[in-house]
Design a protein around this nucleic acid. Structure first.
Length: 668
RNA sequence: GGGCCCGUGACUCAGCCUGGAUAGAGUGCCUGCCUUCUAAGCAGGAAGUCGGGAGUUCAAAUCUCCCCGGGCCCGCCA
């Protein structure tokens, strides 16, 4: 039952993913530096938006809510903040909005907050400029508190499932997109203060597994070309064998043998059942090597055989006892357990809205299994799973797997469930939520989030695991597996390093980091619903709007700080009379909006706005970098103040990079 | 038949949910800038009927309806 269709993710440096072992619940970390009393006002400890709204409210004589609703960042860099209140008031009073704004700007009733240095009417708009002390306070917080910009810790746990790739082949670029989305969403949720748990669903039953077992036994000679750097990687070997098996299936004898294997696997006959599970786990481990190379990690792997053995029946009973599932006695679905959905609005227009959960032969459909699994994710079933360690990941955390023996862990039991799955599977995902709603779990049904994404395709069409369209073609070029893409990218990145003084080891680290960032960014920048046509030419570029562009800005900032330290210059808050230049103001405005940008993106389960934000921040920093000397005589004695800008910019860039999984490189 | 998604300069995409100030980037093309903190960069230029039409509104890329083009979904498949 594989659900995700494609897309794979890039790697990220494992931040603190919520490891499970749980119960040790999170200690709320209070950042000491943020707490200690600071000589400057704390920008985010005062609700500046509320203060501004209150002042505007009295200046214009409108309710506070109306004033607050009119405040926004300007679309062009004409001011720090603005209001379009005059439009709506002018309409009510049938007068000229520009005139109103002009009146409010100089209204004697207005008591503008002290952090506002200037209020001006520009046409119908009311524009606000913040005082230097406001910006200084913001800088102080951004630099002194490591948790600055992170959301307030929230109690709710969000479970994110991805990528659920069948364990019989290597990840192709489509699986990579899915995994990158899942990984980055989990990072984003974490940055917003939520607890994200990363789960993978492994289909260790089914035809493909039987085919893999058969292929492993009979087609050991079928392998990727010897020249391939991945010729000995198990997932690649199985993938090549799988394509071969698919061709041979036309032979009745082969078909018969595979079918027999399938029966033994599904019925748990030994020794086949155990060796099949072992093969599956080995393949997943090989796939996870790919994941790790992109910085993708998991907390728990749930195997389908364990779902069937442990929770499926209970989930089904829950639906049956609610009276919402019935066994058909006649008609084309006779003998099947079905749930009727015709009364649900989203299925209204369907010819037949009945959905089969259990077939007439007693086996579960995909949807049937998924509904039970989803109930478990929300903690609505007795949790009978036990887990054992699957592997220790490079980020130091152990990924656990469901198994026959082991210990219980409080995985799942989530308040919201995000399934990262291709948009093509929107219908079955709706069925899951609809069934939950029907049996009475309305809150949970509303918290079923299908994070849908479009596929990665080739100019000639979609990928097919069976047809092997992911393999290198006859042209002999690289194939479309995630491993090959990263390999190609590293080659290019290495060539791009021209600095003479880097050691071979440094070059490797840089090339790897650049390759990962480039690929991750390439997949994460467009919105998830945008189809991506894979093209090596375009994927392999790293200038302009790209991951390396962001890394470059970050590295530049790092070098300035390094040189400052060598010179013994420390960052200090700008003095009261410091005048921020235009480039500095641009950076400060981005800094100001960052926390709400994170929360907004997280609440919508969208990663791509963060990619845009990071690009914007990198661009603004590069402008600052080229126009504003920080060190040396040209800095005109402002080195310490400007170093503060550099440090804050670096913090902002770093946080956005962590969410996107772009490795923080100190040098490039 | 019913439903979902995409359609913005030559190309690839943001912006649409929460309507407002000259529609933003990048690539490609044309011009400049490395004796000064990394040129994987910066500055500037040419390039756009925001698929089409109607409607709502003081104001529409953004909201509503219809249409066109492309993709996907509506199985006792997985």
């Amino acid at each position: 039952m594989k659900k995700s269709s494609a897309a794979t993710p890039p790697r990220t440096p494992a931040k603190k993913s919520s490891k499970k072992k749980t119960a040790k619940t999170s200690t709320v970390k209070s950042s000491p530096s943020a707490r200690k009393s600071s000589p400057v006002p704390q920008v985010h400890s005062i609700d500046w938006k509320a203060e501004l709204a209150a002042a505007l409210s009295s200046a214009a004589g409108v309710p506070v809510e109306q004033a607050a609703g009119s405040l926004m960042p300007p679309s062009t860099p004409v001011a720090d903040w603005c209001s379009n209140l005059a439009f709506s008031v002018a309409k009510e009073k049938k007068t000229n909005p520009a005139k109103l704004s002009a009146e409010w700007a100089s209204s004697p009733n207005a008591k503008w907050p002290s952090f506002i240095s200037k209020v001006e009417a520009v046409g119908p708009y009311l524009n606000f400029h913040f005082a230097s002390s406001f910006w200084t306070a913001l800088l102080s917080q951004a630099v002194s508190s490591p948790s600055w910009g992170k959301g307030e810790p929230k109690a709710a746990k969000v479970l994110v499932e991805f990528p659920s790739v069948n364990p019989n082949k290597p990840w192709h670029v489509g699986h990579l997109r899915n995994a990158l989305l899942g990984d980055s969403i989990a990072r984003l949720l974490g940055a917003s203060g939520r607890t994200a748990e990363r789960m993978d669903y492994i289909d260790d039953l089914g035809l493909q597994v039987a085919q893999s077992v058969w292929g492993k036994q009979k087609l050991a000679g079928v392998q990727p070309p010897a020249g391939s750097p991945f010729a000995t990687k198990l997932d690649h070997q199985l993938g090549w064998q799988y394509v071969e098996v698919a061709k041979k299936l036309a032979d009745p004898q082969v078909e018969e043998e595979v079918r027999s294997l399938l029966k033994q696997v599904e019925e748990g006959h030994e020794p086949i059942a155990s060796s099949a599970r072992a093969l599956v786990e080995s393949c997943v481990k090989a796939q996870y090597q790919t994941a790790f190379s992109f910085g993708i990690y998991h907390d728990a792997l749930i195997f389908e055989s364990d779902v069937i053995r442990t929770i499926f029946k209970e989930g089904l009973n829950k639906i049956i006892s609610s009276g919402m599932a019935v066994k058909e006695t006649e008609g084309k679905n006779a003998g099947c357990l079905v749930v009727r959905l015709a009364d649900q609005p989203e299925f209204a227009g369907m010819e037949n809205a009945d959905k089969i959960l259990v077939r007439s032969d007693g086996t579960a459909t995909y949807t049937g299994k998924d509904v039970a699994f989803q109930l478990w994710k929300f903690g609505l079933l007795q949790d009978k799973f036990v887990y054992s360690p699957f592997m220790v990941q490079p980020n130091g955390q152990t990924a656990y797997k469901s198994s026959r023996s082991g210990d219980p862990f409080p995985f799942a039991r989530a308040q919201a469930v995000v399934n990262v799955i291709g948009a093509e599977q929107a219908y079955p995902q709706k069925v899951i939520a609809a069934v939950m709603r029907k049996i009475g779990y309305k809150t949970q049904a509303a918290a079923c989030i299908h994070l849908a994404h479009e596929l990665v395709v080739l100019p000639e069409g979609r990928f097919s695991g069976r047809a092997g369209t992911w393999m290198s073609g006859e042209k002999g070029g690289p194939g479309f597996t995630a491993d090959e893409l990263l390999h190609e990218m590293k080659q290019l990145a290495i060539e791009k390093i021209t600095a003479e003084n880097y050691s071979a080891e440094e070059k490797q680290i840089i090339a790897n980091g650049v390759a990962v960032a480039s690929i991750r960014f390439w997949f994460l920048r467009p919105s998830a619903m945008q189809k991506i046509t894979f093209d090596y030419e375009k994927a392999l570029s790293f200038s302009g709007d790209s991951g390396p562009y962001i890394q470059y800005a970050y590295a530049r900032a790092g070098r300035i700080m390094e040189k400052a330290e060598e010179a013994g210059i420390a960052a200090k808050l700008p003095p009261a009379d410091y005048v921020f230049n235009e480039k500095e103001i641009a950076l400060l405005r981005l800094l100001l909006r960052w926390p709400s940008a994170v929360e907004h993106a997280a609440s919508k389960y969208q990663v791509h706005p963060i990619a845009d934000y990071a690009l914007d921040a990198a661009g603004k920093f590069n402008e600052f970098y080229t126009t504003t000397p920080v060190l040396g005589e040209k800095a005109g004695g402002h080195s310490s103040s400007r170093l503060m800008m550099v440090a804050a910019s670096r913090a902002l860039l770093g946080q956005s990079m962590d969410i996107l999984g772009l490795p923080r490189l100190e040098k490039m």
